[in-house]
């Protein structure tokens, strides 16, 4: 039994009928519908007429000789341009570059030698300056040749030449009653971080203060207090060792 198909349903399938793209299941039902429905039948006829009109009015090139010549010209232009593009392509360029291999191996060897030289130079620079491999680091190291890594910066003098002059007074009780620094011969001695050296002389002064001396004796065998001037030289690198006092007796 043929299933009934309404117009709305049938119209949804008419395009498939026209284009011959319908499913077999629909074919029987649509054909049955078209047998009795004049409206849908007329619609199908119109659509077939539209298709035929489109095919009739479509252009069928080329008919004129000049049009045929134009198409041949297009073909030639396409082939010429494609050929030119292929000649300019990267792959062709590479193939052309490697056609002559006579100079390839010498060039490869020279390149390898150059790379080896560069690596060696960089390694030497790196070993010479552990602080920095950069050119800026090398320049800075060269400019600050007097920089000593121990924490002191002595501008123009060896570290052991830093001289302290201290004035002290030895009491009758064999103690240092008072002391003061008269002069630091190299006032430009600074820490690496820029702080003044005097801030670190405390250890030296403590050692002086806790020193004991035999009191000077006057001709009358009476102990007297004396003023003393210390002229001591001490290394300023690292932890300063105790100064070696060079007492000079004298009356002030």
């Amino acid at each position: 039994m043929t299933p009934y198909l309404g117009c709305d349903t049938a119209r949804a399938l008419l395009d498939a009928v026209i284009d011959d793209e319908w499913a077999m299941a629909d074919q029987v039902a649509v054909e049955a519908h078209l047998r009795w429905c004049r409206t849908c039948g007329a619609r199908v006829e119109d659509m077939r007429l539209i298709g035929a009109s489109l095919r009739v009015g479509a252009v069928r090139p080329p008919r004129e000789p000049e049009e045929a010549r134009a198409m041949i010209a297009v073909q030639a232009a396409v082939l010429t341009r494609i050929g030119a593009e292929r000649d300019q392509s990267f792959g062709v360029w590479v193939r052309t570059a490697f056609e002559d291999m006579r100079l390839f191996w010498p060039a490869l060897g020279a390149s390898a030698a150059l790379i080896a030289c560069l690596c060696t130079a960089v390694g030497v620079l790196h070993a010479a300056n552990g602080e920095s491999d950069s050119m800026a680091g090398v320049m800075e190291s060269t400019a600050n040749a007097s920089r000593i890594k121990t924490g002191w910066i002595l501008e123009g003098v060896p570290e052991e030449e830093a001289v302290f002059a201290l004035a002290t007074m030895v009491t009758r009780g064999q103690r240092i009653a008072d002391y003061r620094m008269l002069e630091l011969e190299r006032a430009n001695v600074r820490r690496r971080d820029g702080s003044a050296l005097t801030a670190d002389v405390g250890g030296l002064l403590d050692a002086v203060r806790h020193s004991r001396f035999a009191p000077s004796e006057a001709p009358s065998d009476r102990a007297v207090a004396v003023d003393m001037v210390w002229l001591t030289s001490a290394p300023v690198s690292g932890s300063p060792p105790l100064p070696v006092p060079v007492p000079r007796r004298g009356r002030l």
Binding site: I50, S53, L54, G57
Partner: peptide, 9 residues
């Protein structure tokens, strides 16, 4: 169809 084709196109 010639005339029809004219309108259709």
């Amino acid at each position: 169809s010639k005339e029809t084709a004219t309108y259709i196109w």
